[in-house]
Design a protein around this nucleic acid. Structure first.
Lengths: 241, 241
DNA sequence: GCCGATTTGTCCGTATGTATC
DNA sequence: CGATACATACGGACAAATCGG
């Protein structure tokens, strides 16, 4: 699958920004210049720039130009951002990740589960509870619900590796959108049983509903993180009124 | 300032989705149908749809159509999402917000502050410490640093109302992008002095660097929230490789 | 299985408006 | 004022995925 042209421009500019070919607060070449550089239409350049804007890399200024507002972030803790499997996050954070499957079961959604997860009552689900280790230390406790219909043939063995790799690679599922809510919650007995919180009495909790390209929700997950190894990053833009 | 055409389409479709004119999992009219309905070009319709996609409202499917994937969220706690002033958040969450200014000072950034906030050493700043009340209960502790050059004439009186209203309304500043990091931290003595945490020994912390339309960072803020009244929401989309 | 109609995805060229310099 | 730069919008072309007959 050859990638789209605007994707190439996006990645190329992104790399030039990250490697400081354009330094912080410096102007990028004008759109018309980039049109010549990449031999494409202005719309295509603008699409790449608008994605960089959404990522917080640049700030276009009407009548002036496009400014680089990217600064590298120090990330001591385990950083969470886009939609990623634990395996992918581990690699990006340069840590050695491993997984212990605590529970693996097939269940049917009841009303309580429907209310919590968004899966309709009666739906067949896999319920998985997993403990995640970073550099050998247990730091994250995951509770996953996967739609059985979308993830047939899931096994504890797959769950101990990467479910996402199985879904995307083997099953050909395309993951698209994830709606997430972040809260801070008291530790539970289960948390304390597996994770040494070193004095904290709460955890960072991400709950997410994830959809595939067909708009089908195939996953509900609650991911409970040790506070010292949790860092969530985000870029927001102000809406006009 | 008359709003753009795509903004009108975006808002109209958004409202129709929220009021369930299109129900969950239902298809929206095809792009060509919407072109006729709104008397515009297909690009304009597509722009509106792509924003709805970014907001997690719809899922476009190649060759099939655009599906509504919006479901209303219950929000018991104080929900944070886009770039908002405390005043705006209070209204949206249907709570009565008030503010007590604890500190107000003009300072000059040193190396330590530069490292923390991103403001260069030597920069003149306003430092403000504020306690935020919801329905009369102190729940949020804010530490703000505002670039003096961008926010001249700031006073404790303005800080007790809304700094954003002053910046946008009186000074004509246009707020654009905010880079945020979310962590969970131990309570400090200052936290405990002002906020009753009812057994929690940590708080939800949002640190943000906010830029105006010229790409100038005018604010650094650390916002410390009571765990019971904190809820951060987000929509992410999976990047292709 | 094939073909044509429909629908979304990508890309182009152009025109016009608005802000900046 | 004119030149430059980004913002919005239009119309058209073709590709790719889907669906029904």
């Amino acid at each position: 699958m050859p990638k789209a042209k605007y994707t190439h421009i996006y990645q190329d500019l992104k790399e030039k920004i990250e490697t400081e070919v354009y330094s912080y607060q410096e102007m990028l070449p004008s759109e018309n210049t980039l049109v010549l550089e990449y031999d494409c239409s202005r719309n295509t350049v603008r699409r790449a720039i608008s994605e960089l804007t959404a990522d917080g890399y640049v700030q276009p200024m009407h009548g002036k130009g496009v400014r680089n507002i990217f600064r590298p972030v120090e990330q001591a803790a385990f950083t969470v951002g886009g939609i990623e499997s634990f395996k992918e996050s581990s690699v990006r954070n340069r840590r050695e990740g491993s997984t212990q499957v605590l529970q693996f079961a097939e269940i049917t959604a009841d009303e309580k589960i429907e209310k919590k997860t968004g899966f309709q009552k009666g739906t067949l689900l896999y319920y998985i509870q997993r403990l995640r280790f970073l550099n050998g230390i247990p730091l994250i406790l995951d509770h996953n619900y996967f739609l059985k219909e979308a993830a047939p043939g899931l096994t504890p063995e797959i769950a101990s590796q990467s479910v996402y790799e199985y879904l995307e690679g083997t099953l050909g599922l395309t993951i698209s959108t994830s709606k997430r809510t972040l809260t801070v919650e008291h530790v539970t007995q289960v948390d304390e049983k597996y994770i040494d919180l070193k004095g904290y009495n709460c955890m960072a909790v991400i709950t997410s509903q994830t959809f595939d390209v067909n708009g089908i929700q195939f996953e509900y997950t609650q991911s409970r993180h040790h506070p010292d190894f949790f860092r969530f990053q985000d870029v927001a833009t102000r809406k006009m009124h």
